[in-house]
Design a protein around this nucleic acid. Sequence first.
DNA 1: TTGAAAGCGCTACCAT
DNA 2: ATGGTAGCGCTTTCAA
Lengths: 334, 334
Amino acid sequence: MTATIKDVAKMAGVSISTVSRVINNSKPVSPEIRQKVLEVINEIGYKPNEVARTLVTKKSFLIGVIVTDLGDTYIAQLVRGIEEVGKMYDYDILLCSTYGDKAAEIKYMQILSRKQAEGIILISDSLNKEIDNQIKDFKMPFVYLNRYFSNEDFPTVTIDSLEATYEMTNYLISLGHENIAYVSSSEEENSLEMIKLEGYKKAISENEGYEEKIYYAKGRNIDDGYEICKDIISSNDEITAIFCSHDELSIGVLSYLHDNNIKVPDQMSVAGYGDIKTASIFRPRLTTIKEPFYDIGAVAIRRIIKEIKKEKVDKDTIILPFQIQKRESCAKIL
Amino acid sequence: MTATIKDVAKMAGVSISTVSRVINNSKPVSPEIRQKVLEVINEIGYKPNEVARTLVTKKSFLIGVIVTDLGDTYIAQLVRGIEEVGKMYDYDILLCSTYGDKAAEIKYMQILSRKQAEGIILISDSLNKEIDNQIKDFKMPFVYLNRYFSNEDFPTVTIDSLEATYEMTNYLISLGHENIAYVSSSEEENSLEMIKLEGYKKAISENEGYEEKIYYAKGRNIDDGYEICKDIISSNDEITAIFCSHDELSIGVLSYLHDNNIKVPDQMSVAGYGDIKTASIFRPRLTTIKEPFYDIGAVAIRRIIKEIKKEKVDKDTIILPFQIQKRESCAKIL
DNA sequence: TTGAAAGCGCTACCAT
DNA sequence: ATGGTAGCGCTTTCAA
């Protein structure tokens, strides 16, 4: 059996209260006794049982993180930010993956709650009504991160999507592009897609003679980008730039262009949204809107920890700055 | 305050023992009482406190996973396998990232142990002598995963690296390549690099007139591949295929070739090792050795759970099959 | 089938 | 400064 505080007390010839005090530095202990206790601890390699501790203090130092799929690089980045900041405050991460299963989101929230997690960050890619009821029951610190849908109901961290697509479109225009195709992935209600689309429309509308050229991909994956690019190329030969609402779509577009021997950026410029890892690895490297995933994760958990510590928290929706990452996939029209 | 078993007992007019019994289905309870208890549980939304449970049962249903960096896609794949199988057995994952810091490996092992994790999977990219002492102390199920170094001291899951590079080299030869460069990343002791190199050498030696053309990159990242490719191209113009010991190196090579207008696979074939996610996204897609990361993770945690359940476990080193993923980056010499 | 009570390992309060 | 002890929420004997 592993040693307990009792064993330490016995061997050091003191009470367990005293041992507890030296472990936690919670109350003064005479130097000699402290010394003695420390020796014993070292000798038998005693390690406090955090579970027992949690039971009495109500502090598990655990934060639950529910994600869709770590395989998505943007999620990995989010989790990095979450974990790294968490560790700064001695919090550990309890990880759960849903792979898009909404029922799993609820299930894991329950489990996390039973395991006494002190807060939950839910990273989702869809909308789930049921979360609402769940989280109200638990009444524990909660942050909801969703790259695809806007949400007013829960604390969240995001960027100004409309401003982002607006700026990117303007950048493309400044490069001399007059026929810019925009690829959206969805017309669903509450989808951030609608907001992003507004940014594009706004920029286009501010330039006389420019026209909206909007395409809808079937989804938001690489394959969907590949497919829609086929449509774009065959439907309109004036287009000189393709701006996709997700990097994944852009990668698909880039692939299609590569496979069909259309040179990027000489014959076609391509821009994306997200700055997922692949965006900077793929050749040509993708010009895109950098969503600060790491920071989003970091800010999200920071907020949770503040709430745990009963510090004052910011308003529910935190807007982080974005950046236009200019790379080789976009060039000036000559 | 959240409801406890006591509250349930009181409201149902039974003892906490009885409530415990219906929760756990551990002993017979009369149908009426069970019914009543269940009703109360539902009504007040009672959820057992797993921490209290753990304290008495000694089962935390927690497995610690220490990784270098989730940002590496191969690690994300490993963790996926680990988590998914873990969940099948009701185990949750406690995640810790070291970012290559060896001291952190030890630190997290301690923390995990204090949190009563029932087993630990350590994913490392370097060798760390100190682990040995640590893990012996804890004497808990442990699996050590290292993609870069071989290890005899701990249970692990891997593939037959020598056979893998041997087969890939033979594949290249079968394609008609007579001058195949091999890029290694290290000559360190115990590095798997040495073993992989042997596979290449073996294949070369079995073909009369073929010569070893070995290059050493500075490291094993994309940049290092980019750099070494520069050397290869400038030093030897007979080479028609470049086989790198890591996909990351191959991606760098592909990038250099792209930037310098050398067509792949027409002018140069490129092969890799790993089949990280990028390998199948990059254009041209990379021909590579598929390390079954997901499966490795899955088998690793399966072994741990077996040990926890005191089932018989396999021998310490589990060898999984690999595959040669044939894609567009390699082609026949005409 | 049910209940009472001990005890898991620890903290925190109350004495001294 | 130190020790005794209640109690955190639960499972698990042991009796009844």
